[in-house]
């Protein structure tokens, strides 16, 4: 807004109060998590609700890193990266198709994707369990990757479509006139221009897969294939007294998704702004 605005001091004060409120609202829980994780065990009870601890320690993190958490972390990383890569690839193809082709059944397929966004995915937790068990894939990370990939495809497809819609079709046509096949045009011209979109989709799916809990609980029960959420939850119910270590583990779980998020949030807004994502 480049207009000249008369600012009353009251309005300005109100605005900064709102900014402050939202900042505290968003950051306080995260701050608290990190604070307890850094507080030495001895002080947790005595200084329970003090805003700033009087001493800091990394013991909790050290302890967590020596436990099974590294394994959970690796499992989660494998699952999330696998699902993110798979989804992005498949959704990019589908989003490209919606953006560029007119074909019989297109509306029906789009409607189908929208519908999958609406019904409770928990509805299929029992059938999925039985199918996966029937295939002998319980406790395997592959089953989680496949399930997460399928769950995220609809949204990721719409997201990718909105990015493709933002790339003029002329460019591909020019490339085809220049001698490319459609696939070459896709690879050499469209793909480099969609990198932000691919990044956003990748990050989105990664974050979603990183935090999924209920299907992982259902499908994984062996300690060595647990993902982070499942592992953390088992840890919490087993050792519900070691607050410092739990929160240190929580803090560690926060890192990858927050990193991803900070990187992608700008593109996410951009993708949503360009309007194709109505679901």
């Amino acid at each position: 807004m480049s207009m000249i605005v008369r600012r009353s001091p009251l309005r300005t004060a109100g605005k900064y109060a709102a900014i402050g409120f939202y900042l505290i609202f968003a950051l306080f829980p995260i701050y608290w998590l990190i604070k307890i994780a850094l507080t030495p065990d001895a002080l947790i009870y005595t200084e329970g609700t003090r805003m700033l601890p009087s001493a800091l320690t990394f013991d909790n993190f050290a302890a967590v890193l020596q436990s099974d958490f590294l394994g959970y972390f690796t499992n989660s990383l494998i699952v999330s990266l696998g699902a993110a890569a798979g989804t992005t690839l498949i959704a990019a193809a589908a989003g490209y198709c919606f953006s560029r082709f007119r074909f019989a059944g297109k509306r029906a397929i789009i409607a189908l994707l929208l519908v999958t966004q609406m019904f409770p995915l928990l509805m299929i937790i029992a059938p999925i369990y039985k199918i996966v068990a029937g295939l002998g894939l319980l406790n395997s990370l592959v089953s989680l990757i496949v399930v997460y990939t399928a769950f995220n495809i609809p949204f990721a497809t719409f997201l990718m479509q909105s990015f493709f819609d933002g790339i003029p079709e002329d460019l591909e046509e020019a490339a085809m006139m220049d001698g490319c096949t459609r696939f070459q045009a896709l690879r050499k011209v469209v793909f480099p221009l969609t990198l932000p979109g691919l990044g956003a989709t990748l990050g989105f799916v990664f974050t979603a897969a990183w935090s999924e809990l209920l299907f992982a609980l259902m499908l994984i029960s062996r300690n060595d294939s647990m993902t982070f959420p499942v592992g953390l939850l088992t840890f919490v119910s087993k050792f519900s007294v070691d607050w410092g270590q739990m929160m240190a583990a929580g803090t560690l779980a926060l890192i990858p998704s927050c990193l991803f998020f900070i990187f992608i949030q700008r593109y996410l807004v951009q993708g949503l702004t360009s309007g194709a994502v109505k679901g």
Binding site: P168, D170, L171, E173, A175, M177, C180
Partner: peptide
């Protein structure tokens, strides 16, 4: 297909590849 017809086209929007330099655009 377009690539097999050996015809060149100049678009109204020019359709230059934004991620390539002028030289690479022309030599594409």
């Amino acid at each position: 297909r377009p690539r097999d017809r050996d015809i060149a086209m100049v678009f109204q929007s020019y359709a230059l590849y934004p991620h390539m330099t002028v030289g690479r655009n022309m030599g594409f």
